[in-house]
Design a protein around this nucleic acid. Structure first.
Length: 575
DNA sequence: GCCGTTTTCGGCCCGACTGTTTTCAGTCG
């Protein structure tokens, strides 16, 4: 049972308590603990199995700790079973539909016997829902639309996809003379892995006129809500966009508020409250007097905090760090001097060596590692020893023509099922850079997988562990291994963990990077580019690194070619 | 259910919008 699974059961308890209309703070306590458990670096299953106490998790007290222990041991807990017995199974699922909360879900069940999506759709279509007290034709329509949405898009989209929307909307907004200023807030500004909807702040002289103009945007499919403060629309792509109208004097406060995250906001407000102040989307108030609101830095200053980068605003200790001057100096795009994962036509890439190298140099890089697949990945035309040798020669030949640029001869070698590397050791030892990755037997059990990876990173031939989880966001679950043990092995053998920047990988993810960093492991960023154009994915890898509190010193892509050579030689010398 | 420079009890962030209502409950972020 991994932390995410434990968190899901805690969330289910929270949802069922909502149905029960239990105390709201108790419900929130379960939501909080679920979030903390999901993000927690160490496997709680391991903690429990080793007989250690679950402690140090903020928001997890005695009661929840006991439940977690019970869940690990039995797969469920008494409290959850009792709650499940009280309500039909599908009810918490109904609460996922926009506009349906616990009360309405419960009413639908009690009055109409509805307990799953299908029955709900039927009830709407036969207009039985509209007849219920507090419901009407519009509610019914809204539920039907919500059901459609749930079937259509499974909710969140990858950050990279949202970024395309932001660019399009931004171009449109920037051409509206009525709009003085606009800014994207929300999870997009925090550069989260996936984005549920877009929150865009708008400063405009005439809100009504601005609303009209925005509604003329040709990608708006329908209006979800419209008021003096807010305009919510759905684009034809299914993406929900919330426009918030904001006064100049409140812009900073609104930016903070709508950037979130929610737990971060709550923590900030408590801090304001401790001073007998009030913090909301309009500003920081002492009584009725606005004492800060125009800019974010002004509000942070009043709260006696350093400005916190949006990527850190997840209530993971950033407020305490900001209060004590201990915020990290986060890695930035200009720190990156090269890319350490790229493919060419030699395996499954679309561009040849020279094209990839030129593209990297055009980005201002000082190095690029060419890392094509090894022979086990047949479908990707993986290289055998002989082809890899010739390929490396060709890489070096082209590299020699490029002044001030290190074209690294590397490989992405497969970690076979038993942990052996899919390439002769001699050939690997001749290369500049070796990434080892799991591409097969991904369903292996946790113990076997852990042993497999540790064996591979302990060969002394590996520089980096590629896309360690092997997950594809929303498509493929991560492989299962003991992260602490693997990280320890990586540190001992001087193996970097890759942050793979492909938009649907983002692997390692931020929470595990935080844990790995604490274990003393270094990181490398790689776009895993399969065409020259994909070198731009570096941006997405940087998002992960920043969300993981990483500095330039944690990431070896910030080294100069000479420093990098030195570091890699040292690693090899240890063998 | 959690938590403690206001606290081991009694608080717990705060406001907008919708749909159905005549003053508000439910939902959302």
């Amino acid at each position: 049972m991994n932390n995410a699974q434990i968190a899901n059961l805690l969330l289910e308890i929270a949802n069922l308590l909502e149905l029960q209309q239990a105390d709201a703070f108790r419900i929130r306590a379960y939501h909080n603990s679920a979030r903390v458990v999901r993000d927690w670096g160490e496997s709680l299953e391991d903690v429990v199995k080793q007989g250690r106490a679950i402690e140090g998790l903020p928001g997890v007290g005695r009661s929840t700790a006991e439940k977690i222990a019970e869940i690990v041991k039995t797969g469920t807990c008494q409290r959850l079973q009792e709650l499940r017995a009280q309500f039909p199974a599908g009810l918490t699922e109904l609460m996922q539909i926009p506009g349906l909360g616990p009360r309405r879900a419960l009413m639908l069940h009690q009055k109409l016997g509805v307990s799953d999506r299908q029955a709900l759709r039927a009830a709407c279509l036969s207009h039985r829902v509209a007849e219920l007290e507090g419901m009407g034709v519009k509610s019914e329509q809204k539920i039907l639309e919500g059901l459609l949405m749930l079937d259509l898009a499974a909710g969140r989209m990858p950050y990279a996809e949202a970024a395309v929307h932001v660019q399009q909307i931004g171009e449109y907004l920037s051409h509206l003379p009525l709009i003085v200023r606009w800014e994207v807030a929300g999870s997009f500004r925090r550069r989260a892995e996936t984005i549920g909807d877009l929150d865009i702040l708008i400063e405009a002289g005439d809100r009504a006129a601005a609303t009209k103009e925005i509604l003329k945007y040709n990608l708006v499919a329908n209006v979800i809500g419209q008021g003096a403060e807010r305009l919510s629309v759905r684009l034809s792509s299914g993406l929900q966009v919330d426009f918030r109208f904001v006064e100049a004097d409140s812009f900073g406060a609104a930016l903070m508020y709508f950037t979130g995250s929610k737990p971060h906001n709550i923590a900030l407000r408590r801090r304001a409250q401790a001073n007998k102040w009030k913090l909301n989307e309009y500003g920081l108030f002492k009584g009725d007097t606005l004492i800060a609101g125009k800019t974010e830095p002004a509000i942070f200053r009043k709260l006696d905090l350093a400005w916190i980068a949006p990527e850190l605003r997840e209530d993971r200790g950033e407020i305490a760090a900001a209060a004590t001057g201990k915020l990290p100096k986060l890695i930035e795009p200009r720190d990156i001097r090269g890319d350490l994962h790229a493919h060419t036509t030699a395996s499954d890439g679309a561009d040849d060596i020279a094209t990839m190298a030129r593209a990297a140099r055009d980005r201002g890089y000082s190095f690029l590692a060419i890392t094509d697949h090894s022979k086990a990945v047949r479908i990707a035309n993986g290289l055998d020893e002989e082809r890899l040798r010739r390929h490396a020669e060709e890489i070096r030949r082209i590299g020699a023509t490029m002044r001030g640029f290190w074209l690294m001869a590397g490989v992405e070698v497969d970690i076979l099922r038993d942990g052996q590397l899919d390439m002769d050791e001699k050939v690997l030892a001749e290369l500049d850079w070796v990434i080892a990755s799991v591409h097969s037997s991904m369903a292996l059990g946790k113990d076997e997988m852990t042993a497999r990876i540790i064996r591979a990173v302990s060969t002394g031939l590996v520089d980096a562990l590629g896309h360690p989880l092997g997950r594809l966001i929303g498509k493929r679950e991560p492989i299962s291994f003991d992260a602490e043990a693997v990280f320890r092995a990586c540190r001992e053998h001087d193996v970097c963990l890759e942050i793979n920047a492909q938009p649907d990988r983002l692997d390692l993810p931020d929470s595990l990077c935080i844990q790995a960093r604490q274990a003393g492991v270094k990181f490398c960023l790689g776009t895993d580019a399969h065409r020259a154009d994909e070198l731009r994915f570096m941006e997405f890898g940087l998002n992960v690194a920043r969300r993981a509190w990483l500095t330039a010193g944690d990431v070896i892509n910030t080294l100069s070619p000479m420093q990098l050579r030195k570091r890699l030689r040292r690693a090899t010398a240890k063998v």
